[in-house]
Structure formats: structure tokens, C-alpha cells
Computed example of a mutant assay.
Amino acid sequence: MRPLEPAAPVDYVAIGDSFTEGVGDWYPDGTARGWADRFAGHLADQGREVRYANLAVRGKLLRQVMRDQLPAAVGLRPTLVSFSAGGNDLLRPSGNPDLLAAVLEEGVRRLREAGAEVVLFTGVNVSRGYMSGLVGRFARYYLNIRSIADRHDCHLVDQWSMPVLSAASVWDTDRLHMSSEGHRRLALRVAEVVGVPTERCWDEPLPEVQPVEWRVARRADARWAREFLVPWVGRRLTGRSSGDTLDAKRPDLEKFLPGG
């Protein structure tokens, strides 16, 4: 996949779940910012005309993205689409990485046939921490995504190969979504993948952090379980989602200004 032409206008549409909506990175008014907004800013910083829509909604499964967001994205006739979904499916016992990949590939095919360049993502390495038991399932999905990117000539952002994303400081307190620093660095990585120059690099060393005392860490674990894990399990058991009452934050292609 060749890089974006430096001066060419871009109509960019982002589809997916909380990862793309930007949960964990907040504007002062409490709405999600996230890497996609930041990436749109990097596009605009090059002096090109940028129109941007973000259809992603937290908690959505891949079939919901395909049903609700993909047709809307195709209808906007974008030149560039970022597409990341399936993670919420894989957190469920029924999540089959090969079946999910087949659905994702159908979405990619439709976007490419509509004339859009497509950015795909692997996820981060989950071999450590509370999701380590699911590493095989996630890794299998990501290998499928690599193959899809190859077959359909897509840009691929490989988060698995970004060691900076293993640091605690790039993750929000819920330990599931990236922090503002994580979103900032990922936006820089996406810009690099599509060939958009930026003033800073995604892999700049992180500040050194002092080790956390064992008892402090265990209290933090207990607080995380009480405030985030238990409510998440409760939503899964009752078939609810954190995005059930939410709409897309940027449903239409609108001009995005530098620093926007």
C-alpha cells in the first residue's frame, strides 16, 4: 500500500468500537477524543483539506459494526477508512477468531470495492495480565487480519509489535482502554503507517516510573475489580453494553481543522 499523497484532500471515516471512539482519552467536556481524532489532526496539519466522520460506538460487536456502521461508511464515499472491530466478540466464550475474520474480510472487500483505502489493526500483546488466558484466541484473529491486509492491499497498524504499549502509563484505569498517552502514541503510529509526517515519534522513551509497593498494587487491583470488572461481568450476563444508549459522535463528514 503506497503512502497518502502529501497534498491530496482526504475524506476519512473511522468505524469500530470503543477503541476507535476514543474511550480513555477525553475532551474537557467529557466526550471521547481518541487516536482517530488525533490522527485526523495529523492529516490536517499537513495543510491538506480533511473531512472526518467517526461512526464508532463503545461496546459494539463486529456484526453490529457491519450492520450499522459499514453501510453508512460506504454511503459517505470516503477516500480513507479505519476499521477495527472484533475485540468485544473475542471476550465472549462464543468468539471464534476465524469466523470473525471472515466477516471482517467481507467488510474490507466492500470498502475496497467502494474505492476507499483501508487501515486495519492488530491488537496489543495480551500475553501478560488478566487477559493472558485469551492470548491464543486474539493472536489467531490478528494473524487472520494480517492476511486480510495482504490480500486486499490495506494499511496495517501492528500494535502487537509496539512494546511501548505494554507500559501501564499508556492504559486507562479500567485496564481495557488506552489512556490519553496511549491514544496519542497510536495516532502517531497510524500517521507513520499511512505516510503522514509528524513532529514527534510514537516510540519515544517513556518516563521512568518507580515500582509500586506490593500492598499498594493489591489495593489497586481490588479497586479495579470492584469499579470495572464486576460491572463489566454484570453487563455481559444481562446482555447489556456500555454503548446501548449512545450514537456516533461524528456521524457526518465534516471539515477537520489543524489542532481540531
Rank of each mutant, 00 (worst) to 15 (best):
R2V: 05
R2G: 11
E5H: 00
I15R: 01
G16V: 06
G16C: 09
S18V: 05
F19H: 08
V23F: 12
P28K: 13
A32T: 13
D37G: 09
G41M: 05
G41W: 00
H42N: 05
L43Y: 07
A44Y: 07
E49H: 13
R51P: 02
Y52R: 10
A53Q: 04
G59P: 03
G59R: 05
L62E: 07
A73D: 01
G75W: 02
G75F: 02
L76D: 03
R77P: 02
R77Q: 13
P78N: 05
V81A: 03
F83C: 05
S84Q: 09
N88S: 08
D89V: 11
D89A: 09
P93G: 11
P97C: 07
D98L: 13
A102F: 10
E105H: 02
E106N: 11
G107L: 03
V108C: 04
A114Q: 07
G115H: 01
G115Y: 00
G115I: 05
A116E: 00
V119W: 01
V126A: 08
R128K: 15
M131I: 13
G133C: 11
G133R: 14
R137C: 12
F138C: 12
R140S: 14
R140F: 00
I145L: 13
I148G: 01
A149F: 00
D150C: 00
R151Y: 05
D153F: 01
D153T: 12
H155E: 01
V157Y: 00
W160Y: 14
S161H: 08
V164I: 15
L165E: 00
S169D: 08
V170C: 06
V170Q: 02
V170R: 01
W171Q: 07
W171I: 11
D174N: 07
E181S: 14
H183N: 14
R185Y: 02
A187E: 03
V190P: 07
A191M: 08
E192K: 09
P197I: 10
T198V: 11
E199Y: 04
C201Y: 06
D203P: 09
L206I: 13
P207G: 11
R218C: 04
R219P: 04
R219V: 13
E227M: 12
V233Q: 02
G234V: 02
D247P: 08
R250I: 12
P258Q: 10
G259E: 06
